[in-house]
Design a protein around this nucleic acid. Structure first.
Length: 275
DNA sequence: TATATACGACCACTCCAATC
DNA sequence: GATTGGAGTGGTCGTATATA
């Protein structure tokens, strides 16, 4: 389908009134999303997704500990389900015998090809988009063993590395970037993590970045922002006299227990279920 | 100590290939 | 042709941290 939208329909949030209208129009026209879209001046896709979100009455706000645990369990189950029957049988029996054992998993399986709709169904209280974002956050923490890879001196070093690498690879478009490779500039993190960081970097450092081409953004970061970041890093180094951590090389495989049976208490308070 | 800035957390939305 | 679902982009807001 790939329906291109008029620019004025992009990125406009749904107000309470819009949501109410959507419910009313759905009651009147059923799943005629094209018609409803016309009535609320949005694309058919946008109204269909929004209705699925409000219809499922998912939670908002901070994740409770119970929800987080359900998410981790759900992701584990969905990943295991995707494995071949033989692999699954083997993994299942080894897990039953010894969940704390040295079973390993290839890194790509931890974030690629996961059916988020299945995860959503298992988590019950959050939609698939919320589950996906939360999983990136949890996975980053667990892959880096909770180290502050993007704080203080490390954040400055990561930004410098990121800009230098982007300048070196010299691509014409963001679509050409190998995020997997670029992630190593920050450390052992999922590609989605480095993408978010790059977005924040350009949004905070590059004025009018929306009106610039990708090479223009990179040039600005390299020529203007990079010297400032380097200067800042040096000043901080002198002041704190602490060392910058070298980004950890990406591991090809992770221990199952480090990702799914890691008992860090950083995953929020168990405030009970919300609605 | 007040203010500015950076960052994490969460969310809304589009794109587009695969599937129905 | 319509719908689904994974991937990706970009925005807001609250809070922690840095700086004057």
């Amino acid at each position: 389908m790939s329906e291109r939208l008029p620019s004025l329909l992009l990125n406009i949030r749904y107000s309470k009134g819009d949501t109410e209208k959507l419910k009313i129009y759905h009651a009147l026209h059923g799943n005629d999303w094209k018609k409803i879209g016309e009535l609320v001046a949005r694309s058919s896709l946008s109204v269909a997704l929004k209705f699925s979100q409000i219809g499922s009455e998912r939670n908002h706000g901070a994740w409770s500990k119970t929800e987080t645990q359900r998410l981790i369990k759900a992701v584990e189950e969905v990943i295991l389900k995707k494995m071949s029957p033989q692999d699954l049988k083997e993994v299942d029996s080894r897990l039953q015998e010894n969940p704390e054992g040295r079973l390993s998993i290839v890194r790509e399986k931890l974030y690629k090809g996961i059916s988020w709709v299945e995860v959503e169904a298992k988590v019950e209280t959050r939609n698939w988009m919320q589950c996906k974002s939360k999983w990136t956050e949890i996975l980053t923490k667990r892959m880096t063993k909770g180290r502050d890879i993007y704080r203080g001196l490390n954040a400055l070093r990561a930004k410098i590395n990121l800009i230098e690498r982007l300048y070196e690879i010299n691509v014409e478009d963001a679509n050409e970037i190998d995020w997997e490779d670029l992630a190593s500039t920050i450390g052992d993190v999922p590609p989605s993590y480095v993408q978010t960081k790059f977005y924040k970097l350009k949004a905070t450092c590059v004025p009018f970045w929306q009106k610039k081409t990708f090479p223009e953004i990179i040039d600005y970061l390299y020529e203007t922002s990079l010297p400032l970041l380097k200067e800042k890093l040096e000043k901080k180094r002198e002041k704190t006299s602490s060392e910058v951590q070298t980004p950890a090389a990406p591991k090809r495989v992770f221990l199952f227990r480090d990702i799914f049976y890691c008992d860090d208490d950083s995953e929020g308070e168990d405030t009970g279920e919300k609605s």
